[in-house]
Simulated scan of single mutants.
Amino acid sequence: MNRYTIIFFVFFTIAFACNGQYLDSLEKELKTATNEEKVDILNKLFVVHHQLNPKPALEYASQALDLASSIDYKKGKAAALNNLGVIYKNQGVYNRALEYYKTSLKLSEEINDKRAIASTTNNLGAIYSLKGDHEMALTYFTTSIELFTELDDQKQIIGALNNLGNAYNDDGKKIKALQYFNESIELAEQLGITSRTPEPLNNIGNIYFYNKDFEKALEYYERSYEAETKSDNILGQAQALSNIAATYYETQQLPKAKTYYQQAEQLADSISAYMVLVVTYDGLSKIYAQQEKYKEAYEARLNYDQTQEIIYTQEKGKNSSQLEIATELQQKEKELEVLKKQNRIKQLQIEKSRIVIILSIMGVIMILGAIFILIKAKKVKFKF
């Protein structure tokens, strides 16, 4: 999920303008679909909604799980469980996400759905990475890459390699991290998928930046900016420019740092990317202060404080929304528990009915047997 949730509305509008037709098509198909088809469509509807509007996404995933469970459609059930895991992950409830992913993985393994196994394994790696369990994260990411390689899914391998690089970086193994980031970049370039290169390029830049190798950091940040420009990603461009500015600031090339911060500010302001704006205002205030331009430094600091206030207000709204979704998730958990109990009661009733039927049949057989013996005995007596 995009970390910059403060520009949620911008992406929501753009994405739904692009996906509106697809969404309408899915909703139309849903009305006439058979049971298994309905499950698949509900899971597709989740994919369309989950990053932009989690409430309907939760509903679609829950409906898919209920229907798939009732008709014993394991593939659809595994997908729905995986989707619920995504929702929990996005809400920061990692242990619950882990449970859903593991249950989903078990089902996918039962039906030998390799693509689903690879995706869910990758998701499990992400959860362990977020929980700080680097060893488990590395295990799952490595397995995921192996599975995607078997499937020859090059596009997914790009992301999995980047994830593996992040896991090694978090574990303090920078050289291994660089190896996988570079592999991710090389594969993306071979396939001509430039939209997949900015993240690993930026990650490599960060490694060099924190190791104070600013020349190499600058090289990769500039490459990241070029890739973001080719992909027309304004947010990515703003982030890359801000990183370039920070690198020039660290090397005390203040005029260049100021120019890049100003460019980043202009782009970030055009899409209300407040998290990037905070970084640029902070950088500009420090530069102006060093240049003894105290009025400009004060104005930049005011902008910084105002933007921080906007972020705080929006974070409060986000937390309220998350609380609402979390409440709905808890309610759904209760409903699922009730359904499980009802199913167990039904199973017990069925078992009880079976026992009663069996005992009744056995009773009838015993009675018939007794009658047969009595008749036989009478016949024997009559002969005497």
Rank of each mutant, 00 (worst) to 15 (best):
F8W: 11
F9L: 09
L23W: 00
T32Q: 11
L45R: 11
V47P: 00
E59N: 15
L67G: 08
K74I: 01
K75Q: 13
K75R: 10
L81V: 08
L81E: 00
Q91R: 12
V93A: 13
A97S: 15
E99H: 12
Y101G: 03
S104F: 04
K106G: 06
L107K: 09
L107G: 01
N123P: 07
L124A: 02
A126Y: 04
Y128A: 11
K131W: 01
H134S: 14
M136E: 15
L138Q: 11
F141V: 07
T142M: 10
S144N: 08
I145Q: 02
Q154S: 15
Q156N: 15
I158N: 02
A160N: 13
L161C: 01
N169R: 13
G172W: 12
F181N: 00
L187V: 13
P198M: 11
P198L: 07
N202H: 13
I207S: 11
Y210V: 11
N211F: 06
D213T: 08
S224I: 08
E226C: 07
E226S: 13
K230S: 07
I234D: 07
A238F: 02
N243K: 12
A245T: 14
T251C: 06
Q252M: 09
P255S: 09
K256Q: 03
A257H: 11
K258M: 14
Y260K: 09
Y261T: 10
D269E: 09
S272H: 09
Y274N: 09
V278C: 04
T280Y: 00
D282Q: 13
G283T: 09
L284S: 05
E292I: 04
K293L: 12
Y294Q: 08
K295W: 08
A297R: 08
A300C: 03
Q308K: 07
Q308G: 03
Q314K: 01
K316C: 00
G317V: 08
N319G: 00
A326W: 00
L336A: 01
L339G: 03
R344Y: 01
R344F: 01
Q349T: 11
V356S: 08
I367D: 06
A370G: 08
I371L: 02
I375Y: 13
K379C: 07
V380I: 13
